[in-house]
Amino acid sequence: MNKILPRILAATIAAALIAGCAATPQEQDETRGWSAEKIYAEAKAEQISKNYDRSNKLLEKLEARYPYGRHAQQAILETAYNNYKGQEPLLALSAIDRFIKQYPAHPSMDYAFYLRGLVHFNESQGFLSFLSKQDMSERDPQAARDSFESFSQLVTRFPDSRYAADAQLRMGYLIGALADYELHVAKYYYKRGAYLAAANRGKHLLETYGNTKQVEPALGVMVLAYDKLGLTELRDDAKRVLLKNYPDTKVLDPESLQGRAWWAPW
């Protein structure tokens, strides 16, 4: 009997400890019993304080407890914003895409496209560092293209949106950046003797970014590249267009391809 009692006592203590541990998480959950409005307000307060991880945890609780309310819908966008500011672009884009798919008629859809454009725009900053010494042919412009596409969807579908003006400014910036990239690559090919690739890149610039200041030097690359290839008819056509639109051009000097003097940075 004396041996059994300690065993029973030990088992009782162990059971109490297990029960206590199991209850601890709920006892420590300060949001227990909170309304959707209160959780959302607290999440926004943490967001304003730049406590993005804490804000996201609250937003997760909000979605889990009140999945069908308006605050849960907005919580997806707030999560996307937190991840954008917290340097988590993939998580931000995932949340935005989920919002667009689930709530295509939501009144904040314009903001969703705007935020997606911002995420891609931020990701494109390495590509947009044109004054660096890195070889532009090795840069990937996809993030810049994705950013432009998102902003374009915004201004096309929601022209009166409060975000449309800023989106249009960023689109102009991106168009210049992408045209600049094409020009860099065309020059890169020309300097390495890949004249057909250089001419084709110049042609692509004309067809895609025909309203940019990079058109003039792109025509110059085409004239010089076609000349190297012995394609005199194409050379003369490109030269005719160049001189008609830019009669005082100085881009036909082959030596200028070695530097930046023949085209002004946009």
Rank of each mutant, 00 (worst) to 15 (best):
A194Y: 06
I18D: 08
I8P: 03
K244N: 11
A10P: 00
K250P: 02
Q73L: 05
A10H: 03
P141F: 01
L178R: 10
F113Q: 10
L131H: 04
V185W: 00
E138M: 04
D180E: 14
A95E: 14
P247C: 13
Q74S: 12
A164V: 01
R240M: 10
D237M: 02
P104H: 10
H204G: 10
G172N: 15
A194V: 07
L93V: 06
A92H: 07
E88H: 13
D110I: 12
A19Q: 02
S124K: 11
T208F: 07
A36F: 01
A45L: 06
S124Y: 10
N122V: 06
E123K: 09
N83E: 15
D253F: 15
Y189E: 03
L154M: 01
H71A: 07
Q214T: 09
A144G: 08
K239L: 08
I96K: 05
S132V: 00
A23R: 10
L257H: 07
G259I: 09
K191I: 09
R201N: 03
K85G: 03
N56D: 14
K101P: 01
G69D: 08
S256N: 11
F127E: 04
N51L: 03
S49E: 15
E42D: 10
V155Y: 06
S150P: 11
T208M: 06
F127C: 03
I96N: 03
K187N: 13
L178H: 02
A144D: 07
G20N: 08
H120S: 13
H71R: 13
A177E: 09
E233N: 14
M1T: 05
Y195L: 04
N51M: 00
A194H: 08
R235F: 06
S49N: 14
L234K: 07
Y40L: 13
A198S: 15
W263P: 01
D135I: 05
T212V: 02
A179K: 01
K101A: 12
Q26K: 15
Y163H: 07
G259H: 08
V223H: 10
